[in-house]
Design a protein around this nucleic acid. Sequence first.
DNA 1: GATGAATGAGCGTTCATTCAT
DNA 2: TATGAATGAACGCTCATTCAT
Lengths: 198, 198, 198, 198
Amino acid sequence: MSSFRAQKMAKKKQEILRSAAAVLIEKGYQGTTMEEIAAKLLMTKGSMYYYFKNKDDLLHQCHLMIMELCLEGIETVFNSDCTPIEKLRNAIKEHILLATSEKSMFMALAKPNHNFSDEQLKEVLELRKIYSQYFDRIINEGIEKQVFENVDVKMARLIILGALNWIQEWYDQDGPQSAEEISDAYARYLLKMIIKEK
Amino acid sequence: MSSFRAQKMAKKKQEILRSAAAVLIEKGYQGTTMEEIAAKLLMTKGSMYYYFKNKDDLLHQCHLMIMELCLEGIETVFNSDCTPIEKLRNAIKEHILLATSEKSMFMALAKPNHNFSDEQLKEVLELRKIYSQYFDRIINEGIEKQVFENVDVKMARLIILGALNWIQEWYDQDGPQSAEEISDAYARYLLKMIIKEK
Amino acid sequence: MSSFRAQKMAKKKQEILRSAAAVLIEKGYQGTTMEEIAAKLLMTKGSMYYYFKNKDDLLHQCHLMIMELCLEGIETVFNSDCTPIEKLRNAIKEHILLATSEKSMFMALAKPNHNFSDEQLKEVLELRKIYSQYFDRIINEGIEKQVFENVDVKMARLIILGALNWIQEWYDQDGPQSAEEISDAYARYLLKMIIKEK
Amino acid sequence: MSSFRAQKMAKKKQEILRSAAAVLIEKGYQGTTMEEIAAKLLMTKGSMYYYFKNKDDLLHQCHLMIMELCLEGIETVFNSDCTPIEKLRNAIKEHILLATSEKSMFMALAKPNHNFSDEQLKEVLELRKIYSQYFDRIINEGIEKQVFENVDVKMARLIILGALNWIQEWYDQDGPQSAEEISDAYARYLLKMIIKEK
DNA sequence: GATGAATGAGCGTTCATTCAT
DNA sequence: TATGAATGAACGCTCATTCAT
């Protein structure tokens, strides 16, 4: 079947995406060259165009892959039968672990590239929105169950995600704090922000 | 006096820096071209080299100018005789106002560029550190006076600054929330995170 | 084998070097543009960077190629079993033929460029020194065999090479004198300068 | 009278030319910037355009000034009542002294620039021809008086001038040989080349 | 499928030149 | 006269993209 070929191609694509994501996160879109991505995979830059239409396409699919990973994580958290407090704590921890893991990609690519077509942009933003909404839903759950303060959900979520996304700017794998410690502290403080005081 | 000329040149430099900061924030270092900076001022890119040695110099001074503005703001806040709670609230508000003002520059330039010389990098990071330390000192004051929880100061500060710096990623001058409203909400929630409950 | 590709690349490099040498000799280092070199070969300047790291690299290799050609010629002359007189005559003629041949490059590049790295400069000067020394050795041989006057070898050599290198400044392929005639005259007069009179 | 103004201007021109010649000889036409020339005279580059139409004009007048100096020297030598041998010796020495003097300009500017207008080129070449002809005339005198061999005058002159002009390529004010020693050696050897043997 | 080679558009930078003051 | 300021053309170089093989 051709599905064999297709599978092989998909695998290669994944490989490229992973490599590309790493470089892209480190150097930014403009600072990353096709050659650099290719070199890391022992390919030539010409070959990349067999798998991706162009650099923007590559970046776009990078975003999609990363967002998919994130969504997977948060869905699991959301669908668990924990309390809202537990869910928010887990969502925060999951986010941080993803953002600091060696695969370390993530929302790192803060601004979906300016070169993106409307189509591409819409797609990424949609996923991002879905991701955000999971947080909103968790927060809403907490408010309804009266364990969270009656906060402005959007504001609270923006503060939380902002705090989380900033981690990549300063996180150092060899720094004094482990990802585990960081995620503990972040979860604790951010929860305190919205948990209802007895 | 020649100081007249010098003054005029300084003014032009400021003008260029402001224009550069705007582009820089929107497009990032690599995405910013000398031509675009110049075009916004109805100049030609060649002219920029009369005022700045090169792109890195221009961008470096951009960082310095922005950080200076920030430092001015926080110093005033810190040296006022408010309570730690008031100080933190004001620091947060000031930061947001700067980040959303039309002059809109700021720490936007998350990662001082890779091309920077060690000298330049050190200079910017130093200023950034000073800025951060003001927050640390405010938080410490609050802990000492027992109005803040006994938090990990560094973590708390990172959460706060992360939340604040993310605003630029989504803030829209014509959006539903005014900068005023945003800064109110942010201050309230972030303060709740560290204020000691009675 | 990959040696096929390598060979093809080497050939192209040679081609480019020859073109570059021609322009270089005519216009000097600063006057030579990558575009002009490329245009002569119906290439675009961007392509040159596939073969050479940068302009300095290209020009440096130009020097090396030219010097190699010169050294080949003089080595053959020196290692022949002619008398010193014959050797000097042949060395002069060989030099002129090279300098006036259509491949016309040569020591034309009087001053190895200022932009050259120390490494590059050293390399070129070393080759140049070797070339000069062949002349010195021929002259010394003549002195020892008492067919040449007891001249200051360095001075004599400088006079000879100076006279030879000047030819490119005025030689015109379509001028009244053929390269052959010129080299005859030069050899005769320059020899008379140092040959011992009976 | 306006001749006062004119005189002052002429003086300034001379000053600029001298400074320009020094830089031009050291760095070549393309390597020399108007700014550099101006800076040496504590002027701004814009001011140079009051005295010279453009860079080519400046270079052109440089050539003229230099050639004038050379012509002065050789005329004096030629019109003296020395023997042809003495005259040639003196011409050679004079040439070398000029070429190595601290004012060190001279035919250094080997190739009248490519940008020169036909008019400018013609003018320089004309002066250069006159200079050459003085050598020819001296040589001819020597032949007629039977103190020189019956050489091809043009060839002999080209050899001599070539040898002389090469000196600038290697002469080092702080080198082992003084200009005096060099000119002695050059005169001796070059004369031997054409003097009739008894 | 993969690559060597070429292309062309664009960028940072330099610099001769101009011109109002 | 002299200069501060601006301009624009040109150059070296990079890099995404293409395409024949």
